[in-house]
């Protein structure tokens, strides 16, 4: 072992990283080399001196408080309370509530009337828009889309005179198996 290797191995031994098979070689070298022994002693003295005089100053209390505050705000919550899990759970619950409300709500005559009204208004809007387009086309006007203000006025006028009959509003209701009448069905089929 030469002096350069020995000095590197001294550093490695101090940090506990020197391989076992090199320990004996190093000891043997140090016994016979005064220069490396002196080097070892003076390196250790410098390190001891530095440790003894390590800056004693710490961060200010304000800094430590900031860190604690940040840790409190963003501290890890148990898995069940993690924010993204909560968000997804809330969204899924909302969807289920809306779907449940829609599919399990009783289909009353009022709701059927409302649906029929919506269809009627939609049909009216479509017809009126079609009529307006036709008028515009007849007048050889370049504007294909009817003026929205006029369109709403027309809908308002028409809706006053537009009444649906009972027949138009009727929506067939499914019969329960108990109310199934064999005689009535046969009469409908065979007359």
């Amino acid at each position: 072992m030469n002096c350069n290797n020995a000095q590197l191995n001294i550093l490695l031994r101090n940090s506990g990283e020197l391989a076992d098979n090199l320990q004996k070689d190093l000891d043997f070298h140090l016994k016979s080399c005064k220069l490396c022994t002196k080097y070892n002693k003076s390196m250790q003295s410098i390190m001891d001196l530095a440790i003894e005089n390590m800056p004693d100053r710490g961060p200010s209390t304000r800094i430590l408080n900031n860190i604690n505050e940040k840790a409190q705000i963003t501290h890890r919550r148990p898995l069940i309370f993690r924010r993204h899990i909560l968000q997804w759970t809330a969204a899924a619950a909302l969807v289920l509530i809306v779907l449940g409300n829609w599919s399990f709500s009783p289909k009353t005559e009022d709701s059927n009337t409302e649906i029929s009204d919506m269809y009627a208004i939609l049909a009216l809007v479509t017809d009126t828009a079609y009529d307006s387009k036709a008028i515009n086309d007849d007048n050889s006007d370049n504007s294909v889309i009817p003026d929205m203000e006029d369109l709403f006025l027309q809908i308002e006028d028409s809706s006053d005179n537009y009444d649906l009959t009972e027949e138009e509003l009727w929506v067939p209701q499914p019969k329960s198996p108990q109310s199934y009448n064999k005689h009535e069905t046969q009469q409908k089929i065979y007359g």
């Binding site: 430590l64 860190i67 604690n68 840790a71 409190q72 501290h75 890890r76 919550r77 148990p78 309370f81």
Partner: peptide, 14 residues
Amino acid sequence: YKQGDADALGMLAE
């Protein structure tokens, strides 16, 4: 700290 004990981080910082 990961389980929610914010003081654990303070102990590490100290």
